[in-house]
């Protein structure tokens, strides 16, 4: 989008901003680095898989470490009989629901509580104490409260997400530049203007950080819930496979879980790029 700007005579001489020129880059300059990085990534993966496959059997016991081939076969079987899809769907539902519930309540409560300093100061120690509880420890309690259905997993995921989103958003709200708020006050801005036109956008970075770091935890929460007690989902698939000493099955499920995690991360990254367009380019890495 860069265009050559010709100096114009305005009311004031043009500021000595950077001169913009259209630059013609070759395909290599444009995509060279990206191609290189992806080439190496794929290469590394292939090498790992080949070494794993080669060692599994002659050196290592496939009963313990499985093998890429075994995993692929197992995945193929599961796809064929529908096991994979039905269980993945259950887990994905729990993750997404848990994430939404946790993120929405976390963000909403953060804006309410962190905006009023006194309330925050009063509640801070309680919140930190709750945050410090290992969320796995809540699983038995949640089973008593909500049974062993999907509700329990959704809430286990939501609790972790809640705290991460809440604390990061609150930090974002607290770090809002006082001078920006004052500027709006002088423009005769109302409290509502300050909330929506300063605090909300300024804290967006904190909110997004919270969303980003909490995504893996939504997955962890859901899977742990399934490991503790369930008869469906990827966590169940892991515990069921391991109970049968089926390492291929355990690894196959882990592969599916990491694919889900990568997909979720990609979504959040997209979100972050859109909301942070105003950040300088070098700060985005």
């Amino acid at each position: 989008m860069s265009a050559t700007t010709t100096p114009q005579v305005g009311a004031v001489a043009r500021p000595a901003g950077p001169l913009r020129e259209t630059s013609r880059r070759t395909w290599r300059q444009r995509h060279g680095r990206k191609t290189l990085i992806w080439g190496w990534r794929i290469g590394l993966l292939v090498v790992l898989l080949v070494v794993w496959q080669a060692l599994s059997g002659p050196v290592l016991d496939p009963q313990f470490v499985s093998s890429p081939n075994g995993i692929a076969t197992r995945l193929g079987d599961w796809v064929a009989d529908g096991t994979l899809w039905s269980n993945t769907w259950i887990t994905v539902q729990e993750i997404v629901l848990g994430f939404l519930v946790g993120a929405l309540s976390g963000a909403a409560l953060a804006y309410l509580i962190a905006s009023v300093r006194v309330v925050w100061d009063i509640l801070d120690p309680f919140l930190m104490a709750l945050y410090a509880i290992p969320k796995v420890a809540l699983a038995p309690l949640f089973i008593v409260w909500f049974g062993i259905g999907t509700d329990m997993k959704v809430l286990l995921a939501a609790v972790t997400v809640f705290f991460l989103v809440f604390l990061n958003t609150a930090a974002g709200v607290h770090e809002v530049d006082r001078a920006l708020v004052d500027a709006v006050r002088l423009m005769n801005g109302t409290r509502r203007d300050i909330a929506f036109k300063v605090v909300l956008p300024a804290s967006m970075t904190g909110l997004l950080t919270g969303l980003r770091v909490s995504i893996p935890y939504a997955l962890i929460g859901a899977v742990i819930g399934e490991l503790v007690a369930s008869n469906r989902g990827l966590g169940y698939l892991i515990s069921d496979s391991s109970a049968k000493f089926d390492t291929d099955g355990v690894f196959a499920t882990l592969v599916v879980l990491s694919v889900i995690a990568a997909a979720l991360n990609a979504i959040v990254n997209l979100l972050g790029k859109r909301a942070n367009r105003w950040k300088p380019l070098d700060a985005e890495a």
Binding site: G10, V12, G17, P280
Partner: peptide, 17 residues
């Protein structure tokens, strides 16, 4: 225009000197 910033309307503050 008066302050001589025409052409930079779509720029964000951090992209300016």
């Amino acid at each position: 225009k008066l302050v001589g910033l025409d052409g930079f309307e779509r720029h964000y503050p951090r992209e300016l000197s």
